[in-house]
Design a protein around this nucleic acid. Structure first.
Length: 678
DNA sequence: CACGGAGTAAACATAT
DNA sequence: CATATGTTTACTCCGT
């Protein structure tokens, strides 16, 4: 029921809370450096793959055993021609089916390679799954071949023996029929194999395009996985692809030769979403085939850019376009190598497209779910209702510390832009994102409905999404949330890690940023305390630096004010979030996908903030400062405390309801939470 | 294109 | 001495 779709995890939490924990585990998986890591347990994944591979092997082996037994019986019948009772020989020692040999062939990925691939994070879990299936199918095929070869040898041997012994032609006939029977068995095996693939396909593990019946076998033939393919590019420049070698190898078997070159390039563009082509690699690679020999685009060749040849794995430096063309014609002429590379590239593209399709599907499901959620309390337990279920299950117990008293200024009644969800946020918006670094900050300036905040918190707590807030805003929020409105640096750290899954990794970086912000901004005041120093917020200072944030777009603000057109900011937030957090390795498996609802509310907050600045803030008043701060300001960065401090809109945060047990519950630190695996 | 805000990195100082 | 905590500078990216 509640199986986690992320990263094809094995775990199957039975309840939403379990799911939450499970997801939390996912989200807590740290990534090493800048590259966002697919959120899943590599260890588990590998184990799962191993297990599955083993089971497939077992299946193959048993199937082979059966076939072998059948053959043995027949052979024995032959050898003791005239003797009946074939079952007498059941105890014959088993022939060695060269499973191990099949496993060692270069096309089959070894566990080490698998690990490498996983470490390199070249592939999404979905891809991995597909690849795994391909691998398994490939192994099956190889074993079939081995088996076939063996049997052929044996048959020939027997034939020779029998001929030598001068048997009657009748027995030869029998041999022939036996061979026929064997081939039938082989056929059955192939069918089994296909059925296996079909079942996989039905499970959605292998996506096969309609109108391409031969496709299931194609991966077998190619027997490559994208990661390997990409690696292969390098090797291929100097040698033939193993794939080709095996292709020749397989040529004795009909089941391989049929579909080697059947994957038409047009198909790739068919299943490709028009939007997808606007994005990076796909567009680079796809037109390659057609535009390979043509030279009509003088200086915009898809295979030429930045002075280097973009032929996969080539990267030859070409000073100008002419030399590039020369290089292209000489090095990448129409030969076996190039065609092989093309085939590989097609596979790469195909994989990417598969994944894109899956991701789109998932996104659609997410949006639909979120859309439905706002109206209906609960739908069928879709695997995608992570955020909502998490929120539902947890926010009750862990209500946000700053459940603010609702101020009259802001509509606490949830404006639910989510209801416009799918219609507003189409997938098109995702492809227009550029590298957006700007954070939609300062959300917390504004009274927010506690539900919103809670939802946001729950979301960011568990999703490894970079919060769209500036460090300054976050620090301020952390401090204001504290009962005393003051925190030590370490407590700020803890707040970050507690509230945002994103800050459970790359601790050195963001901690440095936090310190940097604390020192840099005048709004943060260090106060010497009995037990060290604490940091407080000078709200006036904080407000001072705020106006330039969003006021830059007055028309937009006006529009929103008047029409409550939240779709635009929502869109923007989505884009920003996507751009910020998930561009480099955006896989659906990573649960970094921002929830529309939370983003919506975040944007709403910002909108409120903007409005608050356009119309002079009329709301609220509060004591910004803790008595302690007033008592011993030590390093007050050249800006003495203003008496007007009490004015800011900030003070909506009540000090009372912070549960102290929160602080120590977990300090995630930065140490890798993931199980050591390598 | 300049400017400023924000994020990141890093050097350095000081305290624990 | 190592580490935590602050401070400062430099650089980049991005939006205005």
């Amino acid at each position: 029921m509640f199986q986690c779709v992320f990263s094809s995890s094995v775990l199957q939490p039975h309840r939403t809370s379990c799911l939450f924990k499970h997801l939390f585990y996912h989200s807590a998986t740290p990534a090493s450096q800048k590259q966002p890591e697919p959120i899943y347990s590599k260890k588990t994944e590998i184990q799962r793959q191993t297990v599955r591979a083993l089971s497939v092997k077992l299946f193959i082996f048993s199937a082979l055993q059966v076939a072998r037994q059948l053959l043995l019986q027949q052979q024995q019948q032959q050898q003791v021609s005239g003797l009946k009772s074939p079952k007498r020989n059941d105890k014959q020692p088993a022939l060695q089916v060269p499973v191990s040999v099949a496993m060692m062939t270069p096309q089959v990925i070894t566990p080490q390679q698998m690990q490498q691939i996983l470490q390199q994070q070249v592939l999404s879990p979905q891809q991995l799954q597909v690849l795994l299936q391909q691998q398994q199918a490939l192994m099956l095929q190889q074993q079939l071949q081995e088996f076939y070869k063996k049997q052929q040898e044996q048959l020939q041997l027997q034939l020779l023996q029998q001929q030598h012994a001068g048997k009657q032609p009748k027995e030869q006939q029998q041999v022939a029929t036996q061979q026929l029977a064997f081939q039938q068995q082989l056929l059955q095996m192939q069918q089994l194999q296909q059925q296996h693939l079909l079942s996989l396909q039905r499970q959605g593990l292998l996506t096969i395009q309609p109108g391409q019946p031969a496709l299931p076998l194609q991966p077998l033939t190619q027997g490559m996985i994208p990661a390997e393919l990409q690696q292969l590019w390098k090797e291929v420049t100097s040698a033939h692809t193993p794939e080709e070698a095996t292709g020749n190898n397989h040529s004795s078997l009909d089941l391989t030769t049929t579909c080697v070159s059947s994957s038409a390039p047009s198909k790739t563009s068919l299943i490709m979403n028009p939007h997808a082509s606007t994005n990076g690699q796909l567009s680079v690679h796809t037109p390659k085939r057609e535009s390979l020999p043509n030279e009509e685009h003088p200086h915009s060749h898809p295979l030429y850019g930045h002075g280097v040849c973009k032929w996969p794995g080539c990267e030859a430096v070409c000073e100008d376009f002419q030399s590039f063309l020369k290089h292209l014609n000489s090095e990448h002429a129409l030969d076996d190598r190039s065609t092989a590379q093309c085939r590989v590239q097609m596979q790469v593209v195909q994989q990417l497209e598969l994944q894109l399709a899956k991701d789109k599907e998932r996104l659609q499901a997410m949006m639909t779910h979120l859309h439905v959620k706002s109206t209906e309390p609960k739908t069928a337990p879709q695997p995608l209702n992570l955020v909502s279920s998490v929120t539902l299950s947890k926010s009750a117990s862990e209500a946000s510390p700053q459940s603010l008293p609702h101020t009259p200024t802001t509509p606490t009644a949830p404006i639910t832009p989510v209801t416009q969800g799918p219609s507003v946020i189409t997938t098109t918006s995702m492809h227009t994102v550029g590298p957006i670094r700007r954070r939609y900050s300062d959300k917390y300036n504004v009274p927010i409905s506690s539900a919103d905040i809670a939802q946001n918190q729950e979301f960011y707590k568990n999703a490894e999404v970079r919060p769209p807030f500036t460090y300054a805003s976050l620090i301020r929020q952390a401090i204001l949330e504290s009962p005393e409105k003051q925190l030590t640096l370490n407590e700020i750290y803890n707040w970050f890690t507690r509230m945002f899954a994103y800050f459970r990794r790359n601790a050195a970086t963001w901690k440095n940023a936090v310190r940097h912000n604390l020192s840099l901004h005048k709004c943060f005041v260090r106060v010497e305390n009995v037990k060290g120093a604490v940091w407080t917020v000078d709200e006036v200072e904080f407000q001072k630096r705020r106006p330039q944030k969003i006021s830059g777009n007055p028309s937009l603000i006006k529009n929103m004010q008047s029409s409550h057109a939240y779709c635009t900011p929502l869109n923007a937030a989505l884009q920003a979030s996507m751009a910020e957090n998930s561009i480099p390795l955006y896989t659906t498996a990573s649960m970094g996908n921002p929830s529309l609802g939370t983003l919506a509310s975040a944007m709403r907050e910002e909108l409120n903030g903007a409005m608050e600045h356009t119309n002079s803030n009329e709301s609220d008043s509060s004591p910004g400062r803790s008595p302690l701060q007033a008592a011993h300001p030590v390093h007050v960065k050249e800006e003495p405390l203003d008496p007007e401090e009490a004015e800011g809109p900030l003070s909506l945060v009540t000090t009372a309801n912070h549960s102290p047990d929160f602080d120590q519950d977990r300090d995630y630190e930065d140490e890798p939470v993931n199980e050591d695996m390598e």
